[in-house]
Amino acid sequence: MVKIAVENLYFRYPEAAGFALRNVSFRIEEGESVAILGENGAGKTTLAKNLNGLLKPTEGSVKIDGVDTRSLSVAKIARKIGFVNHNPEHQFFAEKVEDEIRFGLRNFGFPEETIDKIIQEVLSVFGLEEYRGKNPFQLSGGEKKRLAIASIMAWRPEALIVDEPTIGMDYAQKMNIRRVLRRIVSEGRCVIVITHDVDFAATICERAIILSRGEVIGDGRLRELLSDDELVEKASLRKPFIIELEEETGLTGLEEDFDILSSILMEVFQKCRS
């Protein structure tokens, strides 16, 4: 079933001379994992904000479950489509981690007696139990990102849009976020990752939508799109490491064993260095 339908979307910021998005059309089905890729300034975040109703199309339409976003409030859309900002600190204001999760649940009118139960469950799923009473601003970068995703996933939206999930993160933190997102995908929820980190996207998403200067220049299976040298160059991206490795070695299905593979490679690199 179609969750999000974008048809001939054009978007222009107030005061801007040109369109930030031009003639963008695609459909995202329930349970799909989609990477929106593109260089800086390609229009990825603008597209994401159109998908969750923060921005309304200048021309064309964005429909959530068949309803035009123009006729829905941001809060109504947010109940179905969660959005995680690239900077988690832009959402923190509570004194404790648990209160940060409580905020969205209260806004959406969850009964108080179930809120505590949900918080406990979410903290456990996202590995944040030990930080329950800690100030969100005192968490590490990776923990902040996990808390940001946790505080959205608490009300169980049907789809999740994550803007630049790996920005400024080290390897271990990226792996944690990857596990969290893969878990959400495995629950049958739709995950849309906005990034230019192709290695990260390749291990989570089946499908990619590639943007360049506000236009869709590629939409299809991520592996196929990112194997196309011409397209990759046009979008100022690069081939994911995993695809390059498969091409070099002739092996296939390496992303299935990505965790094992990456730990082996880390070991090899460390040995080479020493």
């Binding site: 904000k49 969750n52 923060l54 409030s73 941001v74 809060a75 947010a78 109940r79 969660g82 959005f83 900002n85 900077n87 832009h90 959402q91 905020f103 969205g104 806004n107 959406f108 505080s151 959205i152 009300w155």
Partner: peptide, 12 residues
């Protein structure tokens, strides 16, 4: 950006 983020969490 903060305003957008909080609206996405149901703040009205």
């Amino acid at each position: 950006s903060i305003y957008d983020t909080q609206r996405s969490r149901g703040l009205e």
